[in-house]
Design a protein around this nucleic acid. Structure first.
Lengths: 141, 141, 141, 141
DNA sequence: GTGGTCTAGACCACC
DNA sequence: GTGGTCTAGACCACG
């Protein structure tokens, strides 16, 4: 099974974290439905061109969040998450990203109008590029 | 001299990075004007309750960005930055944060309306709380 | 033939182990008497909704413990176990579980009184719920 | 710094899990107080004669439970846990172990009197051996 | 000095 | 075949 995940080798963001973010998004947005059998850690590692350990960690982390369920000898599945909890996850990730953005704007003394105009500009740009996957900026240094 | 910087010990974001982001914001937003003498490394470290190494790194990084200038035996000053470059810095940080936010939204299949509504909600909330400093979400793990 | 066994898919405890523990309990407590013919491997696997391999392992393990006996082409029977050996099995499982419990209590510095009070509370609760099957806590991670 | 942890090489219980259980017990029982700096992962690995990865995992798991806090470049500390939450953790571990024990007893048809007598016997035995550390029984096979 | 990530591979347990 | 544990070691980032 093929999972659409894009890694950015350039980014300082850890591999496992990039995968987690995207896989979590696929689940909470309903693109991967409850009960779906994910690729085995070995398969997935091959697809992502990374170590099995990295995949293992992703599966483990998401399992501890309750988004995945894994049974030894069987495989790893998308867990049954309540619709409400799924929505909570979904909203939270977006809200938190916007909070960071608005705070960044306020730190440099943008007024409401300026923030709105930047938001519109970015939104328009992204929507035009459609679902084209984009390269993330390296975070830290 | 007192520099308004808030560190969040809980966050996984490195200390030096938190300081850099906030200090950069103070400079490019004009809250720290050209020529201003910053606290000595030791003083600043004391204020922030962190290691001098951390402060030294911040000063070095911002100096290499051209935002600070260090005079041996005198101290570290806010550099003279062209208005255009200042604006570039200022815009860039905000735009990049909004790009991340919009991408996060698109990853979980938000449509344009939903993104707008979340943006408005967050913006309103933040504006109401004024410049009250808020706790950042940990970035990575 | 119907064997009352409850599997907990959520638990990290291996399937075969859950089955073994419960089947062993049924035998040494006399609820399955000597000579009883157990379901065929396929039947049992169907009932438990698990793999035949799992059931085969259970039968093998319990046979090597002397609790079951397999006749080629006939099926698997509850073996004749001496009353003393049956009692030994029966006691051992309970004692070992209580040893683990008491050790857990002592590790977190419970004194004798506290241990007793917790024991009473749990015992009372379980007795009230009768023989209602309950969900097991995952052991490891 | 020395942390009293006993590993049982014989047990089928994973190393990391043995360490987790005991370290968790030390924290929630108040034997390691808030703010205590734990040994570095390298030091601890040396003490336990295991890989640094194993220690890392322990620290990470307990951090995600909120019992530890770790800062890169600084070390790993016992987190500030509310007294109530600490007590909850403490009780839960003991209660859960006793539930397993009582269920094991009920599965083999012990009556109330028999359960009590076994409990007393085990408790007395363990108390006599005092705080002498004891070897755990291998769990599964 | 610290912790954080990742590799390549081994061996075991489960289904 | 699957996942689970563990090793030994590398390299980077933080203070």
């Amino acid at each position: 099974m093929w999972i659409p995940i894009q890694l950015n080798e350039q980014s300082a963001e850890p591999l496992y974290h990039q995968v987690e973010v995207q896989l979590r998004a696929l689940i909470v947005s309903g693109q991967l439905t409850e009960g779906t059998l994910l690729p085995s850690i070995r398969e997935f590692a091959q697809q992502l061109k990374c170590s099995v350990i990295t995949v293992r960690r992703v599966y483990q982390d998401l399992e501890s969040e309750g988004l995945l369920r894994t049974r030894q000898g069987t495989g790893t599945f998308v867990a049954s998450v309540g619709a409400d909890e799924r929505d909570r996850h979904r909203l939270e990730s977006v809200i938190s990203a916007f909070e960071i953005a608005v705070e960044a704007a306020m730190r440099v003394q943008c007024d409401e109008g300026e923030i709105e105009s930047i938001f519109r500009r970015v939104l328009k740009e992204k929507l035009e590029r459609g679902s084209r996957s984009s390269v993330r900026n390296p975070e830290h240094k």
